[in-house]
């Protein structure tokens, strides 16, 4: 079972000096936080805000490579969260076959946003990573902690 997620936005986590990508289940507002590094967050932020960089960024290049060979991103799936190591799959359509490629969720999301591909999370991930953790984290957060990347 997989559930479609919307990329809700990005927040700065001042405690861990990292960023959190907030994914949300469409129909029940459950949230899935994914911690990512700074450059990964900026790759996602560019796509979320529709900012076109003067030169292709790494995920723009990734899309250009797929376009060049006529491969299409069908979907990306966050498949597992293990001790803060996250796993994702990028599903590609190429010629008559489908390929599933191992990736970090940050790369998968950055690519999905650029190719308008849907983002899914597996049931296992949603079960493990409840919104409670994020809510607790949000409660502890002071207003001044909200970063510029929050959208």
């Amino acid at each position: 079972m997989i559930t479609e997620m919307k990329v809700r936005g990005l927040m700065f986590d001042p405690y861990n000096n990292a960023y959190i990508v907030i994914l949300r289940v469409e129909d029940n507002a459950d949230m899935l936080p994914i911690w990512v590094g700074k450059s990964e967050a900026s790759a996602i932020s560019f796509a979320l805000e529709g900012v076109a960089a003067p030169r292709p960024m790494t995920h723009d290049l990734m899309k250009a490579v797929l376009d060049a060979v006529d491969a299409k991103v069908i979907s990306v799936v966050i498949t597992d969260l293990n001790d803060n190591t996250y796993f994702a799959k990028i599903h590609l359509q190429y010629e008559d076959s489908e390929y599933s490629i191992d990736s970090r969720p940050s790369d998968a999301i950055a690519l999905a946003l650029r190719t308008n591909a849907p983002v899914f999370a597996s049931e296992a991930v949603l079960r493990k990573q409840t919104s409670e953790e994020l809510e607790q984290w949000l409660e502890d957060l002071k207003p001044e902690d909200f970063g510029k990347l929050d959208s």
Binding site: V65, L66, I90, L92, Y94, I101, S103, R104, D107
Partner: peptide, 14 residues
């Protein structure tokens, strides 16, 4: 896999 490892992996698969 880092981002460029992913691009290589995509190229390999395709």
């Amino acid at each position: 896999p880092m981002s460029h490892d992913l691009i290589r992996s995509m190229a390999d698969h395709l």
